[in-house]
Design a binder for these strands. Structure first.
Lengths: 115, 115
DNA sequence: ACTATATACATAAGAAACTGATGTATGAAA
DNA sequence: TTTCATACATCAGTTTCTTATGTATATAGT
């Protein structure tokens, strides 16, 4: 994932969350969306993305549907029911992780934190 | 690092930041401090911590000083000059990463974000 | 006396997630 | 015709983590 080596597992959360908002995306589209949303600061590499998508599919969180567009194959991913549940779980994990991180790193901050 | 599998490299940032605030800490103390600050939600394992400390020392970011306390050996770590510079660098990396993460997962949020 | 827990260090096997390279294939632009 | 963009995929190697193990001292409980 680009020059930033700061996650591990948050790629899954990103994928699931984007699919919650867009309900149907293909791999290349995801890389472009993330690049766009972060002004090019986070670039998801294909070597990270495709294995992650395959794993989420194998876990039953994503389903696929292949479409032909202009002689090019696109593999669309969407959330399964399990996937829809998992988004919320992963999101609250991420939120509490970031909050804990702030408690460690921003010691002077007041107790009520907003994410 | 505990049940939370969400970072990679942020352990280094945590260590450096704690040492910026406390200027001298030993390994076990770091694990306890993190546990305390996060109400037990993040537990840094020894298998993650000690290799990370050794690596930071090998990179010249930390220096060590061994003390004998009650027949027990303590290895105190403190920031070198390079380490002091690196804290700021690592912190701004982490901050911009979290901001980018929010841009991806909180699409409805207004542009000015606070960390 | 024995066991468990806390303090304090360390290593090591294996798992998981990533980077960077490579490969295939189409289409458009220079 | 070479490069870039689109679109998929795999794979070797690296880094970072988990879990287990090991050493050693001190204290508290049974």
């Amino acid at each position: 994932m680009s020059n930033n080596n700061l996650i591990k597992g948050s790629l899954q959360t990103i994928i699931l969350k984007l699919l919650e908002e867009n309900e149907k995306m293909y791999g290349y589209e995801i890389t472009q969306k993330v690049k766009e949303l972060t002004a090019g600061e986070i670039k998801i590499t294909e070597g990270a993305l495709y294995p992650a998508l395959h794993k989420l599919e194998a876990e039953g969180l994503l389903s696929t549907e292949i479409q032909q567009v202009d002689n090019r194959v696109r593999k669309y991913y969407s959330l399964t029911k399990d996937g829809q549940k998992e988004v919320h779980s992963k999101m609250s994990e991420l939120q509490s992780f970031v909050e804990n991180l702030q408690r460690i790193i921003n010691p002077g901050l007041n107790p009520e934190l907003k994410f």
